[in-house]
Nucleic acid binder design. Structure first.
Lengths: 246, 246
DNA sequence: TTCTGTGAAATAGTTCACAGCG
DNA sequence: CGCTGTGAACTATTTCACAGAA
């Protein structure tokens, strides 16, 4: 478990980095651990936590081993220790001040979301382009004009930019956030942003999620109705034949 | 969380299912295609669309071939045809009425989100447990009491349940939605829901997304500063304790 | 005995590279 | 020609299964 190949400042050798798949699960484990900690559990087995997180126990053990966390054989993992270590790996031992661009319904809801601040992502600033909105106070923060975005980012030491504008303004907002020096963006519009490689963008799009749900629902409905139809399209469908399957 | 199947009784071995990875990209392609269609483009090469969707062209071609879509060699894919076919595969040729549980800031923002209805996910009903909220009208829909949830699901032929309650009420909301017969849930709370296998749950959690962003930002910062900071932090620096959840 | 840590096998997903159609 | 469709190689990720620590 001792990282044989330490993480070097050098970038020549490819460092054994934590896989994206693992990173994506870490917050889930953390969430489960909060629940366990709240229940007063002192330790937890990979099997139990894996069940909570809905993953395979071996996957959980490998994830933890991969970020340098070890448990105790015959016992399990120490809950508090796990919480602490995962938090450190995720960078949650520091605050990441957030700026929200676009104070419409969504922006307002996000600004008012308690979970953000309590989890280390304080909403420090809000900007909008609408003069009627600028100057108003939302969740205790005065909305500023998007023109001073760069200044705000500096002043409030913003780490993450949240894009909650209409889709039509999303790319421009992203450009300005990047111009202001931000490297982490969270995009709530359905727009596929174009950004330089050093910028991390994550997107949360309602329509995308619903479309994926509808795919699976349609599939299960089709399966249930006994139609042997896998992905065949329906009635009004007819297109070039060309179906050579192996 | 996004457990894919669990559906297939293996009657016919002849079903080459669309992979989860492909399904996840389909909405992205669709989004890009909308843009192209709006620009009046009649056809598009896998290379061009792949660039827009930020994927490898071969991946795109394989995805399309996998759902039975073919292009024209030497030319590319017909944009309108692609839009139509992908829509059909995703099940977007029908409407999927949505019910939102929890009409707080977030629920309200979601209810007011235009994109939902225009993309085939009409918000047909809203329920809440707060007597002060029940009876009010949001986005043209009267909020009903969560007690009549099952009735509402029937009446409005709801297909998807959106959970926008406080975290503490999320599991109960999920239970009721499932009890009412729904099989597709979209969860906006950080709670890891426990559901039967036939239910599809997708989660959109702000904190999770931000935590992942903070991981990558921390990593890139560490790399840039040349600190040989490894995965494990030896000298434990005590830090904020993960105390509460809402 | 229980439960971790991890080789090794299995599975999934991506990308190359090129034959061959339009 | 240009661009699709796809075998084959490659990379990533998951899962099994079991040795061995506590």
């Amino acid at each position: 478990m001792s990282t044989a190949d330490g993480v070097g400042p050098e970038d020549h050798p490819t460092v054994p980095r934590v896989s994206d798949a693992t990173v994506g699960r870490l917050p889930v484990y953390l969430q489960g651990l909060f629940g366990l900690a709240g229940d007063g559990e002192a330790s937890v087995s990979s099997e139990a936590l894996a069940e909570i997180a809905a993953v395979n126990p071996a996957t959980l053990r490998r994830d933890l081993a991969g970020i340098g966390i070890s448990g105790t054989r015959g016992v399990g993992y120490d809950v508090k220790y796990l919480v602490h270590e995962i938090s450190v790996v995720l960078g949650l031992n520091q605050a990441w001040p957030v700026l929200i661009v676009g104070v419409g319904n969504l922006g307002r809801a996000l600004a008012n979301y308690e979970g953000l601040t309590t989890q280390g992502f304080p909403v420090r600033a809000l900007v909008d382009i609408d003069p009627d909105v600028v100057g108003t106070s939302v969740a205790g923060v005065v909305v500023e004009h998007v023109d001073v975005l760069a200044k705000v980012v500096q002043r409030d030491e913003i780490s993450v930019g949240v894009i909650a504008t209409p889709a039509s303004a999303a790319q421009a907002a992203a450009d300005e956030l990047i111009e202001a020096g931000l490297e982490s963006l969270l995009n709530f519009t359905p727009v596929q942003l174009v950004t330089p490689p050093h910028v991390q963008v994550r997107g949360v799009d309602l329509a995308t999620e619903l479309q994926i749900l509808s795919f699976y629902q349609q599939r299960s409905t089709a399966a249930a109705s006994g139609t042997g139809v896998p992905l065949s399209v329906d009635a009004d469908e007819q297109q070039r034949e060309s179906s050579d399957r192996d």
